[in-house]
Amino acid sequence: MSEPAVTSANHLTKRPLVVLDAVDKRFVDFAALDGITLSVAAGEKVVVCGPSGSGKSTLIRCINQLERPDAGMVWFDGVDLVAASSRDLRRLRTDIGMVFQQFNLFPHLTVLDNLTLGPMRVRGLSAREAEELARRYLERVHIPEQADKYPRQLSGGQQQRVAIARSLCMEPKLMLFDEPTSALDPEMIVEVLDVMGELAQTGMTMIVVTHEMGFARRVADRIVFMDAGQIVEDTRPETFFTAPASPRGAEFLDRILNH
């Protein structure tokens, strides 16, 4: 298998962790993704933004194959995910953490059990090892005291931090965030963004779909701006925020920053 080269000029030296090549995804008569080509290097933090319906979520859902592309290739860590057997796909997915807009915690399990399920059933850790791991990551997201509660006893911000910890317990190589703060009350957005910022500092590779432009400016190495299923701009945050190259990008920024 030949591995496609990194296309982004400033990351030629780094090994690509994720490569999408000419990915198309259609929903009935609507093209959610239209010829997406994107490469993300290990350790890179990419923020994906764009108007609603532009295909941002579909893009990151194609990376862990929650959506199967209609055409094109998706490579993760040198393996073609589209062609992977379901067994291989399952193994590869453990290396890709996913944080959802609606948290998707398991409501019938305590916080601790939410965190230990994957490590025990998928990674084969013992109950003691898994619990140690879970408590370590709960500490990382600043809610060690909530271990024995059920998700519905927590605030939205706390639930989302549990969801982040749950993904981290799989010790993934890549973390995907699908609008992680869009379902949160404003006062809880900060606590989640802070946790994500701290995670970025550990060197984790992150692809984040978000409307939080402050976070994008602070944390992102690259901004990917999408519209109508296409990548319109793929550039450094300072370039995007100060001098967007496309009229669509400028219009989007104008609307989101000056509302």
């Binding site: 862990n64 929650l66 399952r90 193994r91 997915r93 453990t94 890709i96 953490g97 996913m98 959802f100 609606q102 998707n104 915690l105 398991f106 399920l117 994957g118 059933r121 998928v122 749950r166 993904s167 799989m170």
Partner: peptide, 14 residues
């Protein structure tokens, strides 16, 4: 909910 299945899938559960 679909999200529950997706969460399980993304953890790599069979």
């Amino acid at each position: 909910e679909r999200g529950q299945l997706e969460a399980a899938d993304s953890l790599g559960l069979g």
